[in-house]
Amino acid sequence: MPPVAAPLASETLRHREARVGLLCLAPAVALLAIVFLYPIVSTLLDSVSHVSALAGRTGGPTAKNWQSILSDPAFLRGTLPRTLFWTIGVVSLTILCSLPAALLLQERFKGRKLARTLVLLPWAVPLPISAIIWKFIFNGQLGTLNGLLAQFGIAGPVWLAEAKTALPIMIWVGVWASIPFTTVTLLAGLQGIGADILEAASLDGANGWLRFRAIILPLLRPVLNVAIVLNTIYVFNSFPIIWVLTQGGPANSTDTIITSLYKQAFRFSQPGQAQAMGVVSFVVLLVFSAWYLRLAEKDTQ
């Protein structure tokens, strides 16, 4: 065998393997391209076109869709700020509940495995089904909550009849549903920190809180950032909870961009406006993620 032949052969092998690699990727990439790229392009185009629910894009370009959502006070002063309120509310409360939950579940005790399983369980349950159960619990006539209140002689209200009670309930269900994922993420983060540090910084004693802030929190920061970004994306885009509990009612007072979009498209035959709302929600998330990740980067530096 001549000495030069070996590297040459491995060079062609490398080329061949690179080709095999691309070939292996191709089917997955093809499906992703169709299911992601086409709808995104089509959503953007629709938002600046005349679109009919029954016939699709019929002409354009037009600013009509944007004008009608941006001139609609119900959207600008209702749905949009409410969506932010819902997202920020759910995400911040979730983090606030999940941090202690993760710390509690991190400790060593008998039955820890079972405790973890029970707390994380709701993650596996379909959201619409959880939401149906909560809807029953808060039902005005038959619900568990009002049934219990009645035993104390209190006539509970119809919880989902008004935004002032329905919105907090929605947020509560959102938090309840987000806790498992967040807790498990934070648990993973805590595992990464290592038992000895945690032991040293355990919450016992008077300055437990200080130690938590000084030692654990900074170490947990990267995972916390991930939990915040992912939760924000999930909660912002959340559909089943609101859809099952109130469908955005009464009088759109519990709508978020997502449920409003869905109704515009499939109930009120305004696909153009729905698509414009889709673009809005996408832009909001993009801006948020970019801003937050930059902030997080600066933070760690």
Binding site: P157, A161, G249
Partner: peptide, 8 residues
Amino acid sequence: TQPQPTGY
């Protein structure tokens, strides 16, 4: 009427 009609 019954209270909170928007719940019915």
